[in-house]
Design a protein around this nucleic acid. Structure first.
Lengths: 220, 220
DNA sequence: CATCGCGACGTACAGCGTACGTGTGACCAC
DNA sequence: GTGGTCACACGTACGCTGTACGTCGCGATG
Protein backbone atom coordinates (compact mmCIF):
# COMPACT_ATOMS: atom_id res chain seq x y z
CA UNK A 1 0.00 0.00 0.00
CA UNK A 2 1.50 3.30 -1.11
CA UNK A 3 4.84 1.97 -2.23
CA UNK A 4 7.76 0.53 -0.26
CA UNK A 5 8.42 1.44 3.33
CA UNK A 6 11.07 4.07 3.87
CA UNK A 7 12.27 6.25 6.66
CA UNK A 8 10.93 9.32 4.92
CA UNK A 9 7.50 7.86 4.34
CA UNK A 10 7.34 6.74 7.96
CA UNK A 11 8.23 10.20 9.24
CA UNK A 12 5.76 11.96 6.97
CA UNK A 13 2.97 9.62 8.02
CA UNK A 14 3.89 10.14 11.66
CA UNK A 15 3.47 13.88 11.19
CA UNK A 16 0.08 13.37 9.55
CA UNK A 17 -0.95 11.18 12.46
CA UNK A 18 0.16 13.75 15.02
CA UNK A 19 -1.74 16.52 13.25
CA UNK A 20 -4.88 14.42 12.91
CA UNK A 21 -5.08 12.69 16.31
CA UNK A 22 -2.48 14.36 18.53
CA UNK A 23 0.88 13.21 19.82
CA UNK A 24 -0.53 10.82 22.39
CA UNK A 25 -2.32 8.89 19.68
CA UNK A 26 0.94 8.00 17.99
CA UNK A 27 2.00 4.44 18.65
CA UNK A 28 4.17 2.16 16.59
CA UNK A 29 1.24 -0.14 15.94
CA UNK A 30 -1.13 2.63 14.84
CA UNK A 31 1.53 4.22 12.69
CA UNK A 32 2.26 0.86 11.08
CA UNK A 33 -1.44 0.29 10.46
CA UNK A 34 -1.60 3.69 8.81
CA UNK A 35 1.21 2.54 6.53
CA UNK A 36 -0.39 -0.84 5.90
CA UNK A 37 2.36 -2.90 7.51
CA UNK A 38 3.24 -4.56 10.79
CA UNK A 39 4.58 -2.65 13.74
CA UNK A 40 7.97 -4.33 13.70
CA UNK A 41 8.65 -3.40 10.11
CA UNK A 42 9.18 0.17 11.24
CA UNK A 43 12.22 -0.89 13.22
CA UNK A 44 14.08 -1.62 10.01
CA UNK A 45 14.16 2.11 9.39
CA UNK A 46 14.08 3.67 12.86
CA UNK A 47 15.93 2.39 15.95
CA UNK A 48 13.19 3.30 18.45
CA UNK A 49 10.24 5.57 19.00
CA UNK A 50 12.23 8.42 20.51
CA UNK A 51 14.40 8.48 17.39
CA UNK A 52 11.24 8.61 15.30
CA UNK A 53 10.08 11.71 17.15
CA UNK A 54 13.54 13.20 16.75
CA UNK A 55 13.22 12.55 13.03
CA UNK A 56 9.81 14.25 13.03
CA UNK A 57 11.35 17.32 14.66
CA UNK A 58 14.22 17.29 12.22
CA UNK A 59 11.91 16.93 9.24
CA UNK A 60 9.83 19.92 10.28
CA UNK A 61 12.85 22.04 11.17
CA UNK A 62 14.34 21.26 7.78
CA UNK A 63 11.64 23.40 6.18
CA UNK A 64 13.33 26.43 7.68
CA UNK A 65 16.28 25.89 5.40
CA UNK A 66 14.27 26.12 2.21
CA UNK A 67 12.05 28.92 3.42
CA UNK A 68 14.69 31.19 4.95
CA UNK A 69 15.76 34.05 2.73
CA UNK A 70 19.30 35.08 3.54
CA UNK A 71 19.57 37.80 0.91
CA UNK A 72 17.76 40.54 2.78
CA UNK A 73 20.17 43.47 3.26
CA UNK A 74 18.41 45.14 6.21
CA UNK A 75 19.10 42.90 9.18
CA UNK A 76 15.90 43.99 10.92
CA UNK A 77 13.85 42.87 7.97
CA UNK A 78 15.85 39.65 7.77
CA UNK A 79 15.20 38.92 11.45
CA UNK A 80 11.50 39.65 11.08
CA UNK A 81 11.37 37.42 8.04
CA UNK A 82 13.03 34.54 9.82
CA UNK A 83 10.77 34.86 12.83
CA UNK A 84 7.68 34.91 10.62
CA UNK A 85 8.90 31.92 8.66
CA UNK A 86 9.42 30.04 11.89
CA UNK A 87 5.93 30.90 12.99
CA UNK A 88 4.42 29.98 9.64
CA UNK A 89 5.97 26.54 9.85
CA UNK A 90 4.65 26.15 13.39
CA UNK A 91 1.19 27.02 12.09
CA UNK A 92 1.48 24.41 9.38
CA UNK A 93 2.14 21.73 12.01
CA UNK A 94 0.34 23.09 15.07
CA UNK A 95 0.13 19.87 17.03
CA UNK A 96 3.74 18.95 16.33
CA UNK A 97 5.15 22.14 17.79
CA UNK A 98 5.60 20.76 21.28
CA UNK A 99 7.35 17.71 19.85
CA UNK A 100 9.84 19.88 18.01
CA UNK A 101 10.36 22.22 20.93
CA UNK A 102 10.82 19.56 23.57
CA UNK A 103 13.49 17.64 21.64
CA UNK A 104 17.03 18.57 22.62
CA UNK A 105 18.33 21.07 20.05
CA UNK A 106 21.81 19.57 19.86
CA UNK A 107 21.57 17.77 16.58
CA UNK A 108 22.90 19.56 13.55
CA UNK A 109 19.33 19.94 12.30
CA UNK A 110 18.13 21.44 15.58
CA UNK A 111 20.87 24.02 15.47
CA UNK A 112 19.79 25.36 12.10
CA UNK A 113 17.56 28.12 13.55
CA UNK A 114 20.46 29.07 15.80
CA UNK A 115 22.75 29.20 12.78
CA UNK A 116 20.41 31.44 10.83
CA UNK A 117 19.81 33.77 13.76
CA UNK A 118 23.52 34.01 14.47
CA UNK A 119 24.16 34.90 10.85
CA UNK A 120 21.66 37.72 11.05
CA UNK A 121 23.07 38.97 14.35
CA UNK A 122 26.56 39.09 12.89
CA UNK A 123 25.33 40.85 9.77
CA UNK A 124 23.82 43.42 12.11
CA UNK A 125 27.27 44.14 13.47
CA UNK A 126 27.17 42.11 16.67
CA UNK A 127 30.04 39.77 17.30
CA UNK A 128 31.16 37.07 19.70
CA UNK A 129 29.16 36.95 22.93
CA UNK A 130 27.09 39.95 21.82
CA UNK A 131 25.89 38.06 18.75
CA UNK A 132 24.94 35.11 20.92
CA UNK A 133 22.99 37.34 23.30
CA UNK A 134 21.15 39.15 20.54
CA UNK A 135 20.35 35.89 18.83
CA UNK A 136 19.04 34.33 22.00
CA UNK A 137 16.84 37.28 22.86
CA UNK A 138 14.86 37.06 19.66
CA UNK A 139 14.91 33.26 19.40
CA UNK A 140 13.62 32.92 22.95
CA UNK A 141 10.86 35.41 22.29
CA UNK A 142 9.77 33.57 19.17
CA UNK A 143 10.01 30.26 20.99
CA UNK A 144 7.77 31.53 23.77
CA UNK A 145 5.18 32.75 21.27
CA UNK A 146 5.13 29.39 19.49
CA UNK A 147 4.73 27.45 22.73
CA UNK A 148 2.00 29.79 23.80
CA UNK A 149 0.08 29.42 20.57
CA UNK A 150 0.58 25.67 20.56
CA UNK A 151 -0.95 25.52 24.03
CA UNK A 152 -3.94 27.51 22.86
CA UNK A 153 -4.40 25.31 19.83
CA UNK A 154 -4.23 22.10 21.81
CA UNK A 155 -6.67 23.46 24.37
CA UNK A 156 -9.06 24.26 21.55
CA UNK A 157 -8.73 20.71 20.21
CA UNK A 158 -9.23 19.23 23.65
CA UNK A 159 -12.49 21.01 24.46
CA UNK A 160 -14.67 21.68 21.45
CA UNK A 161 -15.51 25.33 22.20
CA UNK A 162 -16.81 24.60 25.65
CA UNK A 163 -16.03 27.42 28.10
CA UNK A 164 -12.57 26.66 29.45
CA UNK A 165 -12.87 28.67 32.62
CA UNK A 166 -15.89 30.39 34.14
CA UNK A 167 -15.99 33.93 35.47
CA UNK A 168 -17.14 32.49 38.78
CA UNK A 169 -13.90 30.53 39.03
CA UNK A 170 -11.93 33.65 38.23
CA UNK A 171 -13.67 35.57 40.99
CA UNK A 172 -13.11 32.75 43.43
CA UNK A 173 -9.40 32.74 42.64
CA UNK A 174 -9.18 36.52 42.89
CA UNK A 175 -8.02 37.00 39.33
CA UNK A 176 -9.51 40.45 38.95
CA UNK A 177 -7.32 41.59 36.07
CA UNK A 178 -7.99 38.49 34.03
CA UNK A 179 -11.69 38.87 34.74
CA UNK A 180 -11.86 42.46 33.60
CA UNK A 181 -9.71 41.97 30.53
CA UNK A 182 -11.29 38.68 29.56
CA UNK A 183 -12.84 40.04 26.37
CA UNK A 184 -9.51 41.51 25.31
CA UNK A 185 -7.81 38.21 26.15
CA UNK A 186 -10.36 36.15 24.28
CA UNK A 187 -10.59 38.08 21.03
CA UNK A 188 -6.92 38.92 20.83
CA UNK A 189 -5.15 38.88 17.50
CA UNK A 190 -2.15 36.65 18.07
CA UNK A 191 -0.64 37.70 14.78
CA UNK A 192 -0.64 41.36 15.78
CA UNK A 193 0.69 40.55 19.25
CA UNK A 194 3.50 38.53 17.75
CA UNK A 195 4.49 41.38 15.44
CA UNK A 196 4.20 43.91 18.26
CA UNK A 197 6.68 42.16 20.51
CA UNK A 198 8.95 41.27 17.61
CA UNK A 199 9.19 44.86 16.35
CA UNK A 200 9.76 46.11 19.85
CA UNK A 201 12.60 43.70 20.43
CA UNK A 202 14.26 44.19 17.08
CA UNK A 203 14.06 47.98 17.30
CA UNK A 204 15.56 47.91 20.77
CA UNK A 205 18.37 45.66 19.57
CA UNK A 206 19.00 47.92 16.60
CA UNK A 207 19.53 50.86 18.92
CA UNK A 208 22.32 49.03 20.76
CA UNK A 209 25.97 50.01 20.24
CA UNK A 210 27.97 47.65 18.01
CA UNK A 211 31.28 46.01 18.61
CA UNK A 212 32.04 45.74 14.92
CA UNK A 213 30.91 47.59 11.79
CA UNK A 214 27.77 46.35 10.15
CA UNK A 215 26.39 46.56 6.68
CA UNK A 216 22.98 48.08 7.16
CA UNK A 217 20.56 49.37 9.74
CA UNK A 218 22.18 52.62 10.83
CA UNK A 219 19.67 54.89 12.40
CA UNK A 220 20.25 57.61 9.80
CA UNK B 1 4.69 4.79 55.55
CA UNK B 2 4.96 8.54 55.98
CA UNK B 3 1.42 9.12 57.17
CA UNK B 4 -1.90 8.75 55.40
CA UNK B 5 -2.27 9.10 51.66
CA UNK B 6 -3.50 12.48 50.50
CA UNK B 7 -3.71 14.37 47.25
CA UNK B 8 -1.08 16.79 48.41
CA UNK B 9 1.36 14.10 49.46
CA UNK B 10 0.86 12.33 46.14
CA UNK B 11 1.54 15.48 44.16
CA UNK B 12 4.64 16.38 46.16
CA UNK B 13 6.03 12.89 45.73
CA UNK B 14 5.29 13.01 42.01
CA UNK B 15 7.35 16.19 41.76
CA UNK B 16 10.24 14.57 43.64
CA UNK B 17 10.05 11.62 41.27
CA UNK B 18 10.09 13.86 38.19
CA UNK B 19 13.09 15.77 39.50
CA UNK B 20 14.99 12.60 40.37
CA UNK B 21 14.25 10.34 37.40
CA UNK B 22 12.56 12.52 34.76
CA UNK B 23 8.99 12.74 33.56
CA UNK B 24 9.08 9.53 31.56
CA UNK B 25 9.95 7.58 34.69
CA UNK B 26 6.70 8.58 36.38
CA UNK B 27 4.16 5.80 36.37
CA UNK B 28 1.30 5.18 38.74
CA UNK B 29 2.96 2.01 40.02
CA UNK B 30 6.33 3.62 40.65
CA UNK B 31 4.75 6.61 42.29
CA UNK B 32 2.68 4.32 44.52
CA UNK B 33 5.77 2.31 45.42
CA UNK B 34 7.49 5.56 46.37
CA UNK B 35 4.57 6.24 48.70
CA UNK B 36 4.54 2.71 50.04
CA UNK B 37 1.09 1.79 48.73
CA UNK B 38 -0.56 0.07 45.80
CA UNK B 39 -1.05 1.73 42.46
CA UNK B 40 -4.84 1.78 42.65
CA UNK B 41 -4.88 3.62 45.96
CA UNK B 42 -3.83 6.75 44.12
CA UNK B 43 -7.11 6.74 42.22
CA UNK B 44 -8.97 7.57 45.41
CA UNK B 45 -7.36 11.01 45.29
CA UNK B 46 -6.76 11.66 41.60
CA UNK B 47 -9.11 10.75 38.73
CA UNK B 48 -6.36 9.83 36.23
CA UNK B 49 -2.74 10.40 35.39
CA UNK B 50 -3.33 13.48 33.27
CA UNK B 51 -5.10 15.10 36.21
CA UNK B 52 -2.12 14.23 38.38
CA UNK B 53 0.22 16.06 36.02
CA UNK B 54 -2.21 18.98 35.95
CA UNK B 55 -2.03 19.00 39.72
CA UNK B 56 1.76 18.98 39.57
CA UNK B 57 1.69 22.02 37.29
CA UNK B 58 -0.80 23.75 39.55
CA UNK B 59 1.25 22.99 42.66
CA UNK B 60 4.40 24.47 41.16
CA UNK B 61 2.60 27.49 39.73
CA UNK B 62 1.09 28.14 43.13
CA UNK B 63 4.51 29.10 44.42
CA UNK B 64 4.31 32.20 42.28
CA UNK B 65 1.55 33.51 44.45
CA UNK B 66 3.58 33.42 47.64
CA UNK B 67 6.78 34.62 46.04
CA UNK B 68 5.40 37.48 43.97
CA UNK B 69 5.83 40.88 45.52
CA UNK B 70 3.06 43.19 44.39
CA UNK B 71 4.17 46.20 46.40
CA UNK B 72 6.89 47.43 44.11
CA UNK B 73 6.00 50.97 42.95
CA UNK B 74 8.18 51.07 39.83
CA UNK B 75 6.44 48.86 37.32
CA UNK B 76 9.69 48.03 35.55
CA UNK B 77 11.17 46.72 38.75
CA UNK B 78 7.96 44.83 39.47
CA UNK B 79 8.06 43.19 36.05
CA UNK B 80 11.70 42.26 36.44
CA UNK B 81 10.99 40.84 39.86
CA UNK B 82 8.12 38.73 38.60
CA UNK B 83 10.13 37.40 35.70
CA UNK B 84 13.01 36.50 38.00
CA UNK B 85 10.69 34.82 40.44
CA UNK B 86 9.23 32.78 37.62
CA UNK B 87 12.68 31.75 36.53
CA UNK B 88 13.77 30.93 40.08
CA UNK B 89 10.85 28.58 40.46
CA UNK B 90 11.68 26.97 37.14
CA UNK B 91 15.21 26.43 38.40
CA UNK B 92 13.92 24.81 41.57
CA UNK B 93 12.00 22.27 39.47
CA UNK B 94 14.07 22.06 36.31
CA UNK B 95 12.75 18.76 35.03
CA UNK B 96 9.14 19.70 35.70
CA UNK B 97 9.25 22.83 33.58
CA UNK B 98 8.07 21.14 30.41
CA UNK B 99 5.21 19.54 32.32
CA UNK B 100 4.03 22.92 33.59
CA UNK B 101 4.48 24.61 30.25
CA UNK B 102 2.78 21.98 28.15
CA UNK B 103 -0.38 21.86 30.28
CA UNK B 104 -3.16 24.09 29.01
CA UNK B 105 -3.11 27.33 31.01
CA UNK B 106 -6.86 27.60 31.29
CA UNK B 107 -7.33 26.57 34.89
CA UNK B 108 -7.56 29.33 37.44
CA UNK B 109 -4.14 28.32 38.74
CA UNK B 110 -2.57 28.44 35.31
CA UNK B 111 -3.85 31.95 34.77
CA UNK B 112 -2.10 33.28 37.85
CA UNK B 113 1.03 34.41 36.00
CA UNK B 114 -1.24 36.10 33.48
CA UNK B 115 -3.07 37.82 36.30
CA UNK B 116 0.10 39.13 37.89
CA UNK B 117 1.54 40.31 34.59
CA UNK B 118 -1.71 42.03 33.67
CA UNK B 119 -1.71 43.82 37.02
CA UNK B 120 1.77 45.10 36.38
CA UNK B 121 0.92 46.19 32.85
CA UNK B 122 -2.07 48.13 34.10
CA UNK B 123 -0.05 49.73 36.87
CA UNK B 124 2.33 50.84 34.13
CA UNK B 125 -0.49 52.73 32.50
CA UNK B 126 -1.47 50.31 29.78
CA UNK B 127 -5.09 49.42 29.47
CA UNK B 128 -7.40 47.10 27.59
CA UNK B 129 -5.82 45.47 24.55
CA UNK B 130 -2.59 47.38 25.15
CA UNK B 131 -2.21 45.78 28.58
CA UNK B 132 -2.78 42.38 27.07
CA UNK B 133 -0.18 42.99 24.39
CA UNK B 134 2.42 44.28 26.82
CA UNK B 135 1.78 41.41 29.18
CA UNK B 136 2.09 38.85 26.43
CA UNK B 137 5.33 40.27 25.11
CA UNK B 138 7.16 39.82 28.38
CA UNK B 139 5.43 36.57 29.38
CA UNK B 140 6.25 35.01 26.02
CA UNK B 141 9.87 36.07 26.31
CA UNK B 142 10.16 34.59 29.79
CA UNK B 143 8.39 31.44 28.63
CA UNK B 144 10.83 31.01 25.78
CA UNK B 145 13.80 31.40 28.11
CA UNK B 146 12.43 28.80 30.50
CA UNK B 147 11.75 26.29 27.73
CA UNK B 148 15.20 26.91 26.34
CA UNK B 149 16.90 26.36 29.68
CA UNK B 150 14.78 23.31 30.38
CA UNK B 151 15.91 21.81 27.10
CA UNK B 152 19.53 22.44 27.99
CA UNK B 153 19.08 20.91 31.42
CA UNK B 154 17.41 17.80 30.10
CA UNK B 155 20.09 17.39 27.44
CA UNK B 156 22.71 17.55 30.16
CA UNK B 157 20.89 14.89 32.17
CA UNK B 158 20.51 12.71 29.10
CA UNK B 159 24.15 12.60 28.11
CA UNK B 160 26.58 12.80 31.02
CA UNK B 161 28.89 15.49 29.60
CA UNK B 162 29.58 13.58 26.42
CA UNK B 163 30.04 15.94 23.46
CA UNK B 164 26.56 16.55 22.13
CA UNK B 165 27.57 17.53 18.64
CA UNK B 166 30.97 17.38 16.95
CA UNK B 167 32.58 20.17 14.97
CA UNK B 168 32.81 17.76 12.06
CA UNK B 169 29.03 17.44 12.04
CA UNK B 170 28.71 21.21 12.13
CA UNK B 171 30.99 21.58 9.14
CA UNK B 172 29.14 18.89 7.27
CA UNK B 173 25.85 20.70 7.85
CA UNK B 174 27.34 24.05 6.87
CA UNK B 175 26.66 25.69 10.21
CA UNK B 176 29.54 28.10 9.98
CA UNK B 177 28.24 30.65 12.48
CA UNK B 178 27.55 28.04 15.12
CA UNK B 179 30.97 26.58 14.51
CA UNK B 180 32.80 29.86 14.93
CA UNK B 181 30.80 30.99 17.95
CA UNK B 182 30.79 27.59 19.61
CA UNK B 183 32.92 28.72 22.55
CA UNK B 184 30.63 31.69 23.14
CA UNK B 185 27.62 29.41 22.87
CA UNK B 186 29.07 26.83 25.23
CA UNK B 187 30.27 29.05 28.04
CA UNK B 188 27.38 31.44 27.87
CA UNK B 189 25.92 32.87 31.06
CA UNK B 190 22.21 32.14 30.80
CA UNK B 191 21.49 34.38 33.76
CA UNK B 192 23.09 37.38 32.07
CA UNK B 193 21.37 36.59 28.77
CA UNK B 194 18.04 36.39 30.51
CA UNK B 195 18.52 39.77 32.16
CA UNK B 196 19.78 41.30 28.93
CA UNK B 197 16.67 40.46 26.94
CA UNK B 198 14.40 41.24 29.84
CA UNK B 199 15.84 44.72 30.36
CA UNK B 200 15.73 45.39 26.66
CA UNK B 201 12.08 44.44 26.43
CA UNK B 202 10.97 46.28 29.54
CA UNK B 203 12.83 49.46 28.61
CA UNK B 204 11.31 49.39 25.14
CA UNK B 205 7.85 48.91 26.63
CA UNK B 206 8.42 51.74 29.08
CA UNK B 207 9.15 54.10 26.18
CA UNK B 208 5.76 53.40 24.63
CA UNK B 209 2.95 55.97 24.76
CA UNK B 210 0.23 55.24 27.32
CA UNK B 211 -3.52 55.18 26.88
CA UNK B 212 -4.12 55.99 30.52
CA UNK B 213 -2.13 57.71 33.28
CA UNK B 214 0.21 55.51 35.24
CA UNK B 215 1.67 55.75 38.68
CA UNK B 216 5.38 55.39 38.13
CA UNK B 217 8.09 54.92 35.56
CA UNK B 218 8.13 58.27 33.77
CA UNK B 219 11.35 58.78 31.97
CA UNK B 220 12.23 61.93 33.96
C1' DC C 1 -24.37 -4.38 68.08
C1' DA C 2 -25.64 -3.63 63.18
C1' DT C 3 -24.89 -0.80 59.34
C1' DC C 4 -22.70 2.11 56.31
C1' DG C 5 -19.24 4.45 53.61
C1' DC C 6 -14.50 5.54 52.64
C1' DG C 7 -10.24 4.25 51.22
C1' DA C 8 -6.52 0.72 50.57
C1' DC C 9 -5.54 -3.15 47.83
C1' DG C 10 -5.49 -7.22 44.25
C1' DT C 11 -6.82 -8.85 39.99
C1' DA C 12 -7.55 -8.32 35.18
C1' DC C 13 -7.41 -6.43 30.58
C1' DA C 14 -6.19 -3.82 26.59
C1' DG C 15 -2.55 -1.52 24.74
C1' DC C 16 2.27 -0.04 24.72
C1' DG C 17 7.61 -0.41 23.09
C1' DT C 18 10.55 -3.60 21.46
C1' DA C 19 13.88 -8.13 21.55
C1' DC C 20 14.11 -12.01 18.85
C1' DG C 21 13.26 -15.59 15.25
C1' DT C 22 11.44 -16.73 10.81
C1' DG C 23 10.32 -16.33 5.99
C1' DT C 24 10.76 -14.42 1.46
C1' DG C 25 12.58 -12.18 -2.36
C1' DA C 26 16.57 -9.76 -4.78
C1' DC C 27 21.07 -9.93 -5.76
C1' DC C 28 25.84 -12.01 -6.84
C1' DA C 29 29.83 -15.71 -7.60
C1' DC C 30 30.56 -19.68 -9.74
C1' DG D 1 21.27 -22.87 -12.98
C1' DT D 2 22.60 -23.07 -8.23
C1' DG D 3 23.99 -21.95 -3.72
C1' DG D 4 25.04 -18.01 -0.56
C1' DT D 5 24.22 -13.63 1.31
C1' DC D 6 21.71 -9.85 2.60
C1' DA D 7 17.80 -6.62 3.37
C1' DC D 8 13.55 -6.33 4.97
C1' DA D 9 8.53 -7.59 6.21
C1' DC D 10 6.22 -9.95 9.67
C1' DG D 11 4.62 -12.81 14.01
C1' DT D 12 5.27 -13.95 18.59
C1' DA D 13 6.35 -12.89 23.21
C1' DC D 14 7.70 -10.22 27.41
C1' DG D 15 7.56 -6.71 30.68
C1' DC D 16 5.50 -2.56 31.42
C1' DT D 17 1.68 0.87 31.21
C1' DG D 18 -3.14 3.14 32.70
C1' DT D 19 -7.16 1.99 34.79
C1' DA D 20 -12.12 -0.57 35.45
C1' DC D 21 -13.89 -3.37 38.88
C1' DG D 22 -14.53 -6.21 43.11
C1' DT D 23 -13.20 -7.06 47.73
C1' DC D 24 -11.99 -6.18 52.38
C1' DG D 25 -10.97 -3.74 56.79
C1' DC D 26 -11.97 -0.02 59.69
C1' DG D 27 -13.96 4.13 61.98
C1' DA D 28 -18.34 6.59 62.48
C1' DT D 29 -23.25 6.56 63.11
C1' DG D 30 -27.96 4.53 63.91
Amino acid sequence: MGGPLSRNRIVRTAIELIERDGVNAVSMRRLAAELGTGAMSLYNHVPHKAALLDAVAEHILAELEFAADSDIPDWREAARSMARTFRDIAHRYPRSVMVVVSRQPNSAAGLRPVELALGIARAAGFDGPAAVRVMRAVVNYVLGCLVHEASQTEAQWASEDRPLVTTAELDAAGLVNVRELLPALAEHDSEADFEFGLDLLISALDALPRTSPHTAGWKG
